[in-house]
Simulated assay, not measured.
Amino acid sequence: MKAILIAAAIAMVVAILFTPYLIRFFSRQGFGQEIREEGPQGHQSKRGTPTMGGVAILVAMWTGYLIAHLINAMSDGSEAPTISGLLVLFLATGLGIVGFFDDFIKIRKGRNLGLNKTGKMVGMLLVAVAFAIVASQFPDDFELRPASLNVSFVRDIAILSVGTVGFIVFCYLAVAAWSNAVNFTDGLDGLAGGSSAMVFGTYVVISFWQFRYNCGVDQPTVGCYHVRDPLDLAVIAAAAMGACIGFLWWNAAPAKIFMGDTGSLALGGLVAGLSITTRTELLMVVVGGLFVVEALSVVLQIAVFRTSRRRLFRMAPFHHHFELAGWAETTVIIRFWLLAGICAMFGLGLFYSEWLTATGS
C-alpha cells in the first residue's frame, strides 16, 4: 500500500514541477500545436500552444514508479520491478514514442497531419506485437504468465480462448482501439487527462483488490484472481493517475500545454496494457466508457456520412458536437468528466458485484 501512495504522490509532484520547464523549452523551440481549420472557431486561438506535453506524463509516471520501488527496497527489501509492470510501461512508452514522432512531424510541416496512417499503424504494430509475445510467453514457476490467452471480463472466459496467434492479433486491436479512443478524446483542455486519471484511479482499486485476493494456478480458492504481479500493476496505475493529475494542473482550461499524440497514445497504450495484464479486457470497456463513446461517435459519423451523405453529429468526435451546439468548452469538459466518473464507478461496481457472486457473499 505504501508503494501505491508514494508512486502517486511522486508522479503528481514531478508532473507539476517538470511541465513548466517543458512549456518554456517547447515555446522557445516553436513546438506549437496546429489547429484544424474545419474545427470549432473558438479553437483557433489555441494555435501555437506548446504540445508534446505527454513527455511530462511519461517522465512523471516512470519516476513515481521507480522511486516507489527504490524507497520500498531501502525500507523493507521489497521486490524489484516485475515483468508485468515493465511490460505495461514498455507498451505506454513505445506508443508515446510513436506519438512523439507524429507530433514532431506536425510541427515541422506546420500542419495538423503527422505520420501517415501506414507509419502510425506500423509503429503501433511493432510495439503491440512485442508486448503480446512477451506477455503471453514469459515463463513462470507456477506457469502464470503476465497475460492470458482467454478474453476476460473480470476473470477468464473459458469459451473465449484465442490461442497464441489470436492473442497477438487481439493485443494489436486492443492497443490500436484504445490509443485512438484516447486520442479522439484529447480535443478539449484537460478532457483526456482528467478522464484518464479517473480510469487509472479505478484500476488502483481493482489491482489492489486482486492482490488482496490473489492465488496461483495451483492454489484454487473461491473468489481469488489468477493475475500475475497485481500489486505492481496497482503501483503503475497510481503513478499514471498522479502523473495525469499533475499534468492537468497546466493542461486545464485554458491550457498552457497540450499532451499531443505523445500523451494520448501513451495513455491509450496504458489503458490497453492494464486491461490485458489484469485480465479485465471487457470490463475496461465499461470503466473507460467515455473513450468508447468518443471513438464510436467518429465511427458512426463516418459510416452515416458515407451511406447517406448526411452528418449524424454537427462534428465528431462527440465533444465537438456540443461545442457547436453552443455549450461553453468548460461546460463540455466538466460534464464529460462526470460521465467518465460515472463509467468508472459503474465498472468498479460490476467488478465488486462479480466478486460477491463468486464468493457467495
Rank of each mutant, 00 (worst) to 15 (best):
I6R: 00
A9L: 03
A11C: 02
I16C: 02
Y21P: 01
G32Y: 11
Q33Y: 08
R36F: 04
G42S: 10
T49D: 07
P50A: 06
L58M: 15
W62K: 07
G64D: 00
L66Y: 10
A68W: 00
N72G: 14
S78K: 11
E79G: 04
L91W: 07
T93H: 09
F104C: 03
I105N: 01
G114R: 03
G119C: 04
K120A: 13
A132G: 13
I133M: 10
Q137S: 15
F142V: 09
R145T: 13
N150R: 06
V151R: 03
S152R: 07
F153V: 01
F153T: 01
V154S: 04
I157R: 05
V162T: 02
T164N: 13
F167K: 05
I168Q: 07
L188T: 03
A192Q: 10
S196K: 07
A197I: 08
N214I: 08
C224I: 05
H226I: 12
A237M: 05
A243P: 00
T262C: 07
S264I: 05
L270V: 08
L270A: 15
L274C: 04
I276D: 10
T280E: 05
E281M: 07
M284N: 08
V287T: 14
V298K: 09
A303N: 13
R306L: 13
L312V: 13
L312E: 10
P317E: 06
A325G: 14
G326K: 10
T331W: 10
Y352S: 13
S353W: 12
T359W: 06
G360Q: 12
